[in-house]
Design a protein around this nucleic acid. Structure first.
Lengths: 138, 138
DNA sequence: GTATTTTTGCAACAATGATGCAATTATTTA
DNA sequence: TAAATAATTGCATCATTGTTGCAAAAATAC
């Protein structure tokens, strides 16, 4: 486990520090998405707030985690599948937000469908979020 | 124009006040989405920041405007088509964010496709955001 | 036109996020 | 492995964004 964490950091040419290991471990142990606040709660007093922000930014830039769009002004992050290159994510899966437990889940096997856009619009990237009740809560 | 604004407010059983008229007018004159900051800039010193927040909340609750999900922690609002009932939006159209002009556009004619979810997941609502280059910028 | 209800503006506060800089920690290289 | 270099962290500080309570003002109802 710790081995995998260090390996992932090395693969992304990031120096191995306590905060990075701890935060990456959190993502690996949870399969859902995490917000900044979630992470701060779970790491407790271990790290400065600013360090958490910077670590998350670094992870997004490296392609270790990706952002999930929400309507409630809360940024959520989730682990990328291992084929994301730096700055070039291609996790085109659907995200599911459960209204009961409020968890955000990556549906890795559900691809975002391609829609036909009006004339003149060129798509580059699509995001899709489905809300409802997850399989744990139903 | 002013007539239509007042009518819309009345239809939603909202009292007709300066801020509500002005903000609704802004939405009607723009076809794209607006953020809180956009509105504050455009109304200038006319209204208090808090009033803008509360007006937007009221409009969302009444079904006059709807929220658009983003990954960058900025809430965007756009006018609903007139068949949205209070608290019960059914604007299931795709939103387009242009990377050039940074505008968010409602593609009213592009419906969000239905995706097949894994066993146990019950969908209630879907959101889809496509980024790329809009027809004005291409 | 007055009474009642609603909305507004102000003040204060809470949460979230960013930046500069010195101190600390990790990596390099000799 | 130890010193030199490079990167990261923590702290202080600040900016932005959003919320709440309450009195004053405005809108609706009577």
């Amino acid at each position: 486990m710790t081995g995998k964490i260090k390996e992932t950091l090395k693969q992304n040419r990031l120096s191995i520090t306590g905060s990075r290991q701890k935060i990456l471990e959190l993502f690996l142990s949870k399969n859902g998405a995490l917000s900044h606040a979630d992470i701060e709660n779970k790491t407790g007093e271990s790290f400065d707030r600013v360090t958490v922000y910077r670590t998350l930014q670094t992870f997004v830039e490296s392609g270790i985690i990706h952002l999930i769009p929400t309507t409630d002004n809360s940024i959520k992050y989730a682990l990328c599948k291992n084929d994301c290159a730096a700055g070039h994510h291609h996790d085109n899966h659907v995200h599911f937000i459960c209204g009961e437990c409020n968890k955000t889940i990556c549906l890795d096997d559900v691809n975002i469908p391609i829609v036909k856009l009006p004339k003149g619009f060129t798509p580059q990237h699509s995001e899709m979020v489905v809300t409802g009740v997850c399989k744990e809560c139903k």
